[in-house]
């Protein structure tokens, strides 16, 4: 390789990258919380008895799972404001798109988690005289949530990867900052390599964390079945 690598050129722009990283975390954090909350709600709807609730929830889930994230981002930034006749910041549009996207995936997760609880648990609770809300709160949800933590952390990592797409609609997250630096320094190799490495370190350590969490959950009090 006879290219002269020169990381010095982008050395002065670490603060720019840092600002981008902060926005990445903000975007991911807010979208995750909103997405999980919404996902729980939609998951409960999906799991309800009446078709009036389950059908819209099912459609919602299919729409947001079966459309590409970038399309969702672009739609919320360019199309949605026209629909509701308002202007919207790019960050807001990104939060909306990523939250709805996350909610659709986590709704399935919640449903799966609750349905994975053995029916015997429901029966034992009822046999003691417990009613619906108490049964959910004391017996079902504590067990279900524990099972959902590994796939949910997986979702969090996927979400963090998706934040890079927000650069397309000019949200000043990490990749966008990279683009800015490249525009100034004309050194795409160093710039994009550094950006890639930062993401790599961030997400790889994230997956290692997930593995550790999974193993610890599996170990302590090791519930059977």
């Amino acid at each position: 390789m006879d290219y002269a690598w020169d990381f010095g050129a982008i050395n002065r722009y670490w603060s720019v990258l840092w600002n981008g990283l902060v926005v990445t975390f903000q975007l991911a954090g807010i979208s995750l919380l909103a997405g999980l909350a919404l996902g729980l709600f939609v998951g409960m709807m999906r799991f309800a008895k009446s078709p009036v609730l389950t059908w819209p929830a099912a459609v919602y889930i299919e729409v947001f799972r079966n459309s590409p994230v970038l399309v969702q981002l672009v739609w919320f930034y360019y199309a949605f404001p026209v629909l509701i006749d308002t202007t919207m910041s790019a960050f807001m549009a990104a939060v909306l798109a990523l939250s709805f996207n996350t909610s659709a995936f986590s709704a399935e997760l919640f449903r799966g988690g609750i349905q994975s609880i053995d029916t015997g648990q429901w029966e034992a609770g009822r046999a003691l005289g417990m009613r619906g809300p108490t049964l959910m709160r004391r017996i079902i949800l504590p067990q279900a949530i524990r099972r959902m933590i590994p796939p949910l952390t997986g979702r969090a990592i996927e979400l963090t990867k998706m934040t890079a797409l927000a650069s397309t609609i000019a949200v000043p997250e990490l990749l966008y900052q990279g683009k800015l630096i490249n525009a100034v320094t004309f050194r795409p190799i160093e710039t994009y390599t550094v950006v890639a490495v930062i993401y790599l370190v961030l997400l790889w350590s994230g997956t290692l964390l997930v593995d550790r969490v999974e193993r610890r959950l599996g170990r302590s009090d090791a519930w059977n079945r």
């Binding site: 998706m162 890079a164 890639a196 790889w204």
Partner: peptide, 11 residues
């Protein structure tokens, strides 16, 4: 698997 695909594409 860990790097966002858009970053890879740009690279």
């Amino acid at each position: 698997r860990a790097t966002p695909p858009l970053v890879l594409l740009f690279w």
